[in-house]
Computed example of a mutant assay.
Amino acid sequence: MSKKSNNYYTASAYEEAIRTVRTNIQFSSLDKENRIISITSTKPSEGKSTVIYNLAKSFAENGERVILIDCDLRSPSISQIAGIKDNVGVTNYLTGKVSLERAVNEDREQDNLDLMFTGPVPPNPAEILASKIFKNFIEEVSEIYDYVFIDTPPVGLFTDSSIVATLSDGIIFVIKSSDTKKEEINQALDNLKKVEANILGCVLTYMPSKDKGYGSYY
């Protein structure tokens, strides 16, 4: 099998995994639709931002109107992942310096997907996310879009994710395979449970794949 074929199967496996997560979210509750969804991890570099960006794209591809908001005000990365250079976003809007329309970018690859970057990184991220202005902002965008996805910092290091979880219908927890320790995971989950976060489930990242056709599914 050629190298190109191997890459194709790996990409197909990833896309299928993302679609599976999308389906699980859609059917995760029969009583209440999960429309505001945040994501976190135990520590940095576990792949949460890439996961939520591709998940947002998958929902948009399915015909939903979606916005992805980068609320990792400590180490933003959605702008880089999307390949769009813009330093205007959440903090600019919350401080009244720009309109919502100016603070939002259209994704370059996917229709129906809008992106809102962090804007200038503030000295007090947790205070901003805990403010009434931020709560009103989330309520505002949830009335405009079918789904609101929110990227947040690692819950094992900061309280930001726990704060945003209280405003979310559900939260996704990302775990890096063969790297994150069980004790770290348990502590992070405890932090979310303390605020009664609705944990939709976990996504395991960086799983090794086999270069044998369907064997690359993981």
Rank of each mutant, 00 (worst) to 15 (best):
A60G: 01
Y14K: 08
L73V: 02
S216G: 08
G156T: 13
S177C: 09
A11D: 13
E64H: 09
V148L: 08
A11W: 07
S142T: 11
I67R: 11
V164W: 01
K182S: 14
Y9H: 04
S131Q: 01
R19S: 10
A197M: 03
F137V: 02
P122E: 10
E184I: 09
G156R: 12
N87M: 12
L200S: 09
I18C: 00
T205L: 07
E101N: 15
S168D: 02
S2K: 11
P76F: 08
D111E: 11
D86S: 13
F149L: 00
V88K: 04
S75I: 11
V141I: 07
T91K: 04
K85G: 12
V164T: 05
S99W: 10
N124P: 07
N54A: 08
S45N: 14
E127Y: 04
S5N: 13
K212R: 12
K97I: 10
T23P: 02
K97M: 12
L189C: 14
S142R: 06
S2L: 14
A17K: 03
N198L: 13
N198A: 11
M116G: 10
N6K: 15
I36W: 01
T10I: 14
D190C: 11
I172Q: 02
V21D: 05
F134A: 06
I52W: 00
N198H: 13
D190K: 15
K212P: 05
A60N: 00
D190R: 15
K210S: 10
Y217Q: 08
K4R: 10
S41C: 12
N186V: 15
N34T: 09
F137D: 03
D107N: 15
I67N: 07
L167R: 10
V104W: 02
D107M: 13
A130C: 10
N7L: 14
N136V: 07
L68R: 00
E61C: 12
F59T: 04
Y145R: 05
I138P: 06
I84E: 00
R108F: 03
D146H: 05
G63F: 08
I52N: 00
P154D: 08
Y14E: 04
E16F: 13
S177L: 06
G170E: 04
S45E: 15
Q26G: 14
D107R: 13
Y8T: 15
K48I: 05
E64V: 05
V88M: 04
R102H: 07
A130V: 09
S99N: 04
D70H: 07
G156Q: 13
V174C: 00
S5G: 07
C71I: 08
I37C: 01
V141K: 04
V90S: 00
V174F: 00
D70L: 07
R108G: 05
V141W: 05
K194C: 11
I172T: 06
L189W: 08
S168L: 03
M116T: 08
P154A: 03
P120G: 10
D151R: 00
S58N: 10
G96W: 04
Y53A: 05
